Simulated assay, not measured.
Amino acid sequence: MNKKIALFFLSVVVLAGSVFPGISFASTNDQGINEKLGLPIVVYGEALSQSQKEEVAKLLEVDQHEQVDEFTVTGQDIAKYIGGNPNSNMYSSVKIIHKEDGNGLNIDIVTPENITQVTKEMYTNALLTAGVENADVLVASSVKVSGHSALTGIYKAYDAKGVKLDKDRMKVASDELDVATSIADKEGVDQEKVSQLLTEIKKQIAEQNPATKEEVEQIVKDQLNQLNIQLSPEDRQRLVDLFEQMRNLNIDFDKVRSQLDDLTGSLQNLMNDDGFWNKLTSAIKSFFASLSSFVNSLFS
């Protein structure tokens, strides 16, 4: 290879690292099988064609691991785990890597352009409700989808590996995801703000330990007012009913309070940073300006 060409490509990596210090270039080196935690789990949507499945496998970096446990999520699974339509087409796919206690739940939507309704904060909230902890979860789809079936895939993965999640909690978590995406879609509330609302309500339930539905309703009302979110009476009632279900299930949100605090903090930081996108745009412009100058110096 021409030395100038090689130097050019090296410069791209160096410049990218200096302009975007948060970017990491993933290694595909496998660190071997974790005998304590088990193999990574990959769950593919049944509706994927073979070529789409291969694309998703690349997106989820399945080849990064020497071995994985693979499963397929079907319409029958969505009926089994959350009472959904057994004729549903399942596209969303996931990879789950179990972690030691204390690592928390980390969600990464690999294809955010194709997961149109569910944000990583919504997934985090729903999975904490379902009782999923200490795992890295990657979500991907090769076509545009809402993202709901990924939740079912995660449930199936845990079930297949012998980890029994509470069925009622799984159903409530699915309802939570439906309510969150519905409010964002129908009411026009920003997705991050919806996630913040759900998180704050859970934190208040953990703190106040409401004993009645009326107390749950007051918590919902207070948080709506605090975040200045206006909802229809129907959606207000859906929120109250949702969290009343959680209260009746005695879900211990105090157990995952630190993760709820972290989730709130990350959401507030993003929402309060009015210059975030301006900074990103400036960084991109600066990167390409530096790159252009360097290229000109190489080939002049």
Rank of each mutant, 00 (worst) to 15 (best):
K203H: 06
D77Q: 00
L7Q: 04
V94Q: 02
A26D: 04
N103S: 09
A16G: 04
F9K: 13
G153A: 00
D30V: 01
D252I: 10
A180K: 08
R257A: 08
A157C: 07
S11I: 03
G131Y: 08
T264V: 15
L37F: 06
I107M: 11
S18G: 14
V132E: 12
L270K: 10
L231T: 05
K53P: 04
E121I: 00
S195K: 08
S146T: 09
A130G: 09
V110M: 04
K202V: 10
K171H: 12
A211W: 02
L15E: 15
N272W: 15
N2D: 10
V139T: 03
D136Y: 08
E46G: 00
I107Y: 14
D166N: 10
G38Y: 11
T124A: 15
K186N: 03
Q259V: 13
F294L: 05
K4N: 10
I96F: 08
F9I: 03
E200D: 04
W277D: 02
V189R: 13
A79H: 11
I23D: 00
T264G: 07
Q64I: 02
I23L: 06
V68Q: 01
V73E: 01
I219E: 05
D262A: 06
L177E: 05
K3F: 12
L138H: 11
V256R: 07
P21A: 10
K164D: 02
V216Y: 14
Q245R: 07
F288P: 14
I82K: 13
S88H: 00
I41R: 10
I97T: 13
S195D: 04
L7G: 00
F288T: 14
